[in-house]
Design a binder for these strands. Structure first.
Lengths: 186, 186
DNA sequence: CATCTGAGTTTTTTTCCGCAACTCAGACGT
DNA sequence: ACGTCTGAGTTGCGGAAAAAAACTCAGATG
């Protein structure tokens, strides 16, 4: 996420002096910015718990009913109930009524468009797990492009059209919505 | 994550009958497979808590020392201690000794190569948060390609070279490492 | 020798999770 | 009409994990 090498120890690097005498090896002092005012932190307030992403994975794979989620995930019912409410409130999931013939009305949970937009996150996690945590017999699941049956991967591209490689060097800098921390370190 | 529409209610879809009479709208019954034997689930056992990804974000942005992390994240010290141990044990983070002139030996935490490979996950979350949770003044941070200064995005591509759009249709199917659930639903 | 600092541990309190039991409404068999 | 079944939750409780704050400890510094 940075242009400087992560392998060079702090002591060997040119640095910006921080107010605490600690060398900071970046072009700007990330720790001067509010940690919560960050899209990653904000996203994690919605899905940064042990279950939400698994629920979303199941929903996106067609497991949509309360008891099916309970059975498949092994999640406690009250926890699932709360997570689904939170996800619905966050706009990631909608509760929809449906009725099978001869049965009373039921509800199912579906991904909203915003929820579907989380799929790249799921695919990025899947790719990482495939690489580092797979059994030797191969990945437990494969995502394919329905048009051509080829496997789908997550890749990083820049808007100039360059394809970034496996271990990209990036530069992260404050954007227009950045905010400095209120209480400076003391 | 699926080739079938998420917007069509269960009752209107062609389906595979499950053993519980519930229609399953996919080509295969996802819930028949073990939920834990999944690269997403496995990855989440390492980073699926409220802090790990924020710690990794900070590490990748040059905040590497214990007290700096405590101050920046607002995390409790004992929790940070445990998370760092777990991340180190999982191979995502290494603890490295270093010594500034006139100071005693200290430790800093760095991303390992495996940890750096999580960056696409962070960027995917950042993109989602930018889109759905940003203040009107714009994203709090921007990732750029150091070579050309253009913004970096996460994109989905298939191995046949097709660029998948914003709302891709995917097909997820069991891979060679998949495992059926032991206890079938009852 | 007293003090400061970075980097944790220990202790205590609070919050959250997992489990099991319970509720509730509607369909269904008899 | 009555009991049963099922899906979809809610309630209540014990234990695990997180937050907060105090304490430790080693080495540099005045």
């Amino acid at each position: 996420m940075t242009a400087t090498s992560d392998d060079v120890p702090i002591s060997a690097r040119a640095s910006v002096a921080s107010d605490r005498g600690a060398p900071v090896p970046h072009a700007y002092d990330f720790s001067a910015f509010d940690s919560e005012t960050c899209s990653i932190a904000r996203t994690l307030t919605l899905i940064g718990d042990r279950w939400s992403l698994l629920i979303l994975r199941d929903l996106s794979n067609g497991v949509r009913r309360f008891d099916d989620l309970v059975a498949h995930l092994g999640i406690a019912r009250n926890v699932l109930s709360r997570r689904l409410c939170a996800l619905a409130e966050g706009g990631l999931v909608t509760r929809a009524a449906y009725r099978l013939k001869g049965a009373r009305e039921r509800h199912e949970y579906r991904l909203s468009p915003a929820g579907r937009d989380l799929i790249p996150i799921l695919l990025a996690m899947m790719a990482w797990g495939d690489r580092y945590l797979s059994a030797p017999d191969g990945p437990p699941a494969v995502a394919r492009h329905p048009d051509c049956d080829a496997r789908v991967r997550v890749s990083l591209v820049c808007e100039a059209g360059h394809q970034l490689g496996d271990r990209p060097r990036l530069r992260v800098e404050p954007g227009p919505g950045s905010r400095l921390r209120e209480r400076r370190p003391r």
